[in-house]
């Protein structure tokens, strides 16, 4: 719910993906599966593209996550910091590709503005959510 509100208030930044990444970090595969399905339908439903763009985005995200895991420990801040940058760039590429592939003549915001903003959003949201998640686990709520 908070993520949907964040998406509304920031005018188009993605706040749903960090939830999936936290589940991946914690290796909660069942949760990853149902959350991915739900997130795909939510993002596609509130977006303006033909169905399928978010599936491509999440597939790329999962591949990048498993490849990055070989290099860095997924739990630390450096991983979150660098992976968020990759994700923000990937997000921009996917949107740009979808706009061009589906021949939508729209004005996209500048990548020099959109990518840093999305990067910041991922880092902040991911860090806060992860801290809250760990706290909940520590106190036995999860």
């Amino acid at each position: 719910m908070a993520s949907i509100w964040c998406q509304e208030l920031t005018g188009g930044l993605d706040f749903l993906s960090p939830g999936l990444l936290i589940c991946l970090q914690m290796s909660q595969w069942g949760t990853v599966l149902w959350m991915t399905t739900l997130w795909v339908f939510i993002q596609e439903g509130i977006g303006n593209f033909e169905f399928g763009v978010i599936i491509l985005f999440y597939t790329g995200m999962y591949l990048a996550f498993f490849l990055s895991r070989w290099l860095l420990e997924p739990g630390n801040f450096l991983f979150i910091f660098l992976f968020s940058l990759i994700l923000a760039i990937w997000n921009w590429i996917i949107v740009l590709g979808a706009v061009s592939f589906q021949e939508l003549h729209v004005l996209l915001p500048s990548p020099w503005k959109q990518i840093p903003l999305q990067w910041l959003a991922y880092v902040v949201h991911w860090s806060i959510s992860l801290a809250l998640f760990r706290r909940s686990v520590k106190y036995g709520h999860l």
Binding site: I4, Q7, E8, G11, G12, L13, D14, L16, Q43, E44, I46, G47, N48, F49, V53, I54, N91, V95, A98, V99, L104, V106, L108, Q118
Partner: peptide
Amino acid sequence: IGQKLGPNAVLETML
């Protein structure tokens, strides 16, 4: 109740 919702909302829309 809403304006631009999410990264895929590339058009000028309202909810």
